[in-house]
């Protein structure tokens, strides 16, 4: 029987970078992209199972699409206990969103400081090429210096949105396998 793992994935980032769009595009399998900007108040929960290749196991991604506005930050932190994986999103046309990535990451990591939480850094809105202010190299450097994996995507073009989720699911599954090894060695 295939094992179904459950991962709590916290999607965080500044307001208006595209977290809800990414989550909805991934959740609907690139069927729909929210054209109008709807500000997320508090947290939206979306669940989607991801198949792990070379295995019959599935990882259910519980995406906690959190609000980006600072006013909601206290409220949103209440939903952030025991994160499994983290996804920090920033907008390549907005430099402030890039510089706040570290802030968001620290907030999430503070919820569970003893364990290593795998995560990804997402550069969204790469379709706005002329307004792009942050180079991929900068993003990659920030991701590497904080132990995150760097991905670029465009929720509007529905391009490369699935890859970070697959990566996170894979990492989670890998962690599970490692844990099983550890538990087996204890006995």
């Amino acid at each position: 029987m295939p094992t179904i793992l459950r991962a709590k994935c916290i999607v965080a980032g500044d307001a208006g970078v595209g977290k809800s769009s990414i989550c909805q595009v991934f959740h609907s399998d690139s069927a729909q992209f929210p054209k109008n900007y709807t500000m997320t108040t508090s947290v939206e929960l979306l669940v989607k199972p991801v198949n792990i290749p070379d295995s019959r196991d599935q990882v259910e991604m519980y995406m906690y699409d959190s609000a980006g506005k600072e006013i909601f930050s206290e409220n949103v932190i209440k939903f952030w206990d025991h994160p499994s994986v983290v996804m920090i999103v920033y907008d390549v046309t907005d430099e402030t969103s890039f510089s706040s990535c570290i802030k968001w990451l620290e907030r999430v990591r503070a919820m569970k400081s003893q364990t290593n939480i795998p995560g990804v850094l997402i550069a969204n809105k790469i379709d706005l090429d002329q307004r792009r202010l942050i180079s991929p190299k900068e993003g990659k450097d920030l991701a590497m210096s904080n132990g995150l994996e760097y991905f670029e995507c465009s929720a509007k073009e529905m391009q490369n949105v699935d890859t970070p989720f697959f990566y996170m699911a894979h990492e989670f599954h890998k962690m599970y396998q490692e844990r099983l090894q550890v538990y087996s060695s204890l006995a």
Binding site: Y62, H82, Y183, A187
Partner: peptide
């Protein structure tokens, strides 16, 4: 690693949670 491993009386087998 089903939960039955908890009540089988041995430490060798175990039950594991799957996250959350």
């Amino acid at each position: 690693h089903p939960p039955e491993h908890m009540i089988d009386g041995t430490d060798e087998t175990f039950w594991t949670t799957t996250g959350l």
